[in-house]
Design a protein around this nucleic acid. Structure first.
Lengths: 220, 220
DNA sequence: ACAATAATCAATATAATTATTGAATATATA
DNA sequence: TATATATTCAATAATTATATTGATTATTGT
């Protein structure tokens, strides 16, 4: 094999992985799977895809060995193959945000409020948790909370937030987190809480990034 | 705009960037541009593409704002838009190597020798340079050396290595580096040097990774 | 101004990707 | 065993990506 054939094969292999990621729905699926293993049905529901279409996209990801699957009962659970997949997604998202004012503008414009929102770093949150001065809420759907969450966090899915307001403390700062930097749920939660007179801030990362730093407790 | 439209736009933007990367030739171009700015002609030559085809791929990368261009005289120089592009490429390559025995096997099989090859980390090289116990050679094409190289390195393009053997020291270890982990030039150089009785090892990273760590000296 | 060089553009044929539809295959539960 | 549920498969049409070719534009040097 000559050098050119070798290069063609190596870059071809890498491009086939990249191609498997190069689709809006599959990127969304990757971010969803970063929250924890999910069934096809749940993935289809969360991404607004038909079951058959979601299944096909999952086959594509599986073909590139970006996801692993496990069958339990009549459900088949998909999950990310390894941390490298999440890291590619992370750097991809960083690139998108850096390169493209468009994406950032989209995110900013989507917030109903224009005022800058206070955010808390992972390190700060750890400090406040030790001092007992923060109350952490996980605003993702309950299934994702159950698949893994920040140790002391309470599950308050964003569509249940209004109903559960009374159970939240007014004397502590409430720190909300969700799926990650592209996810709007924590933004919305903080906004609502502030309107209702709570002290609230957003965790600057989502659960997968927190977990990657080895700070997580998994519930099984 | 509702949540679904918002998500479609954000993931669509990110997928359009990913699509721009999802091609073997464009990945090879990214790695080449990580060595420094290059003209279309040079890129076409190094990647074995026709000029027109290389130009089209560069347009695609430019459209996704992954590369920047500058015209000097009759040449147009392309370069990576920012470090995020290189970091995506890096994590992509890591994912490829982790996920795919195939890629790793290709790289291993391509070496003519089967014996494991000693490699030197960046930190070790810095130590040895301070002690004066290493002699560093850059085996990339001279143009890439000229665009930036390790401070004390000497340019010995891999196709000139045999002719330049006599100028290399036998009493020091010779450390060879090239474009990065997928590049075969340093492997081949070390192999040749060892056959000829030199003490030689491969730097475990390429020039772009070294530069990313802020260890580089740029020549302009 | 004229030739030579570097790069891009435009048109085209081929190949690959995608969403949709309906049928098929497992698995659990009654 | 029958039935409902979860997922995959296969076929299709529409869209998008790719390499090639030859023409065109921009720049340099004579």
């Amino acid at each position: 094999m000559n050098v050119r054939d070798f290069k063609n094969k190596v870059y071809g292999e890498l491009a086939s992985i990249t191609k498997a990621l190069a689709n809006p729905h599959r990127l969304e699926i990757i971010e969803l799977l970063a929250q924890g293993p999910s069934s096809v049905e749940y993935i289809a529901d969360q991404t607004a895809l038909s079951i058959a279409n979601a299944s096909q996209h999952l086959q594509t990801l599986k073909g590139a060995r970006l996801v692993a699957t496990e069958k339990r009962g009549k459900y088949r659970y998909y999950s990310l193959a390894n941390r490298h997949v999440f890291e590619v997604w992370n750097s991809m998202r960083e690139l998108g945000l850096s390169r493209n004012a468009e994406v950032e503008r989209l995110i900013r414009d989507f917030r109903t409020s224009r005022k800058a929102m206070e955010s808390v770093t992972s390190g700060e949150l750890l400090n406040r948790l030790e001092k007992g001065s923060a109350f952490v809420i996980d605003v993702r759907p309950r299934k994702e909370y159950e698949a893994g969450h920040i140790e002391s966090a309470v599950s308050v899915p964003h569509d249940e937030l209004i109903r559960k307001l009374k159970s939240l403390p007014k004397d502590k700062q409430i720190v909300a987190y969700c799926r990650g930097p592209l996810c709007a749920m924590a933004y919305e939660a903080v906004e609502l809480l502030q309107e209702k007179g709570y002290r609230a801030a957003r965790l600057e990362v989502g659960y997968p990034e927190w977990e990657l730093k080895g700070l997580a407790v998994n519930v099984t």
